[in-house]
Design a protein around this nucleic acid. Sequence first.
DNA 1: CGACGATTTGAATAGGATCAATGGGAGTGG
DNA 2: CCACTCCCATTGATCCTATTCAAATCGTCG
Lengths: 232, 232
Amino acid sequence: MRTTDLPQVRSLELFRSMSESNFDTLMQAAYLQTFPTQLDLITEGDPADFLYVVIEGCVELCARSNGRESTMGMVRPVGTFILAAVLKDAVYLMSARTCQKSKILLIPSENVRDAFERDEAFARAIVVELANCYRGMVKEHKDLKLRTAVERLANRLLRYHREQGSAGSLDLPYDKRTIASLLGMTPENLSRAFNTLKPYGVDVDGAKVHLSDLKSLQILAKPNPLIDNRES
Amino acid sequence: MRTTDLPQVRSLELFRSMSESNFDTLMQAAYLQTFPTQLDLITEGDPADFLYVVIEGCVELCARSNGRESTMGMVRPVGTFILAAVLKDAVYLMSARTCQKSKILLIPSENVRDAFERDEAFARAIVVELANCYRGMVKEHKDLKLRTAVERLANRLLRYHREQGSAGSLDLPYDKRTIASLLGMTPENLSRAFNTLKPYGVDVDGAKVHLSDLKSLQILAKPNPLIDNRES
DNA sequence: CGACGATTTGAATAGGATCAATGGGAGTGG
DNA sequence: CCACTCCCATTGATCCTATTCAAATCGTCG
């Protein structure tokens, strides 16, 4: 790994409180690589050889069964994926592919587990990250089980709006096809859901969405911090 | 806590490798209580005061939003719940209530976090437990996103059948109403799903289910170890 | 300009939910 | 022991949501 990248990695929440020597050992074993877009990084069912940390770009997590496929989540900087599989030394439950040119840190599983045992601060950071992943997944599951498609879309729009500064409009961060899959619906249905939201002040132009009647959209969406807030 | 219960707790995977003194400290702060059936233990949104460990009985995890409610999971001995909330010192994302008379260990959150920092073996056990919870939730989510209601039921029956010794029949472990909610459908729809499975050798009599044509049921269900196997 | 992929729209269908009514134990009290 | 009640489960009918298939449209890129 190039030494110029080290400070960037070191500053990540996950590694910040590690001891210097443990960090060095871990990084000696790690690779920092840039991948082109649409590249398959891992496949569900494969043994967890590496922990992945997204430094730049974006990665899509997806899952397949029967003939179907669904987007399980998106990972943006700075996020990890498949931490649980690495810690358990198990197989991946999800596949991952880049959806942009992405700079990604690969740390061999064994070294992650070593560092976990050796470095208490790292262990704590790992647990916080894992707990966040778990809670994120619980929220996704609640979203899907407790809401209709239109409600899921409305709440997702409100979330993107908030994350982008509540300026009355927002950019869809991914393809509509991807957003549809993320929200558990077909692209056709997403398109119709946008139409359903038009009377609530939702105007779509490509990836730009304008929200002209936040109040009525919120009444429809009934946002719930225990589902929609990423941080808590 | 009664000292007669201590060995039972000590033998749990989570506490087995803890140091004696750390275990004693933790247990000094803990309560072991027996609750009647249908008692609300925690409510989503409340701060995580305790880590819960189910020693005997059964606990249902559920979530609410808008007017809707859904069963998120069942916890049987020996399982924990809301570990992530405790470690993060955050609010619960799910509510919990007993669905049988249940013996439950309550450990104050603060003491869990203390023990986590002090005892390396405990930290490792916590991480394994948390990783298991995460992977279980991923599997639930895949199940819901990638399968129809009938497929979910078929696979769940195959799983119960396997867990109960593959003897050609199985007992439904919960009310049909609960199973329906767990599988993300209405009780009416569950009843119809059972009818749909009749041609595949599924015969239901109350809580007893007889599987007379495993082969064709498996062809329909297309079980996937990355969704259906609890252990891996 | 032309081709390709993504998105949208329309029509038909399927899957699941809701509402209403009925049947069937388990438990209670006479 | 039996009638009664209550709750769960089932069934039927209908409605609504979402998927599928097909076709049209839009944009982008070469």
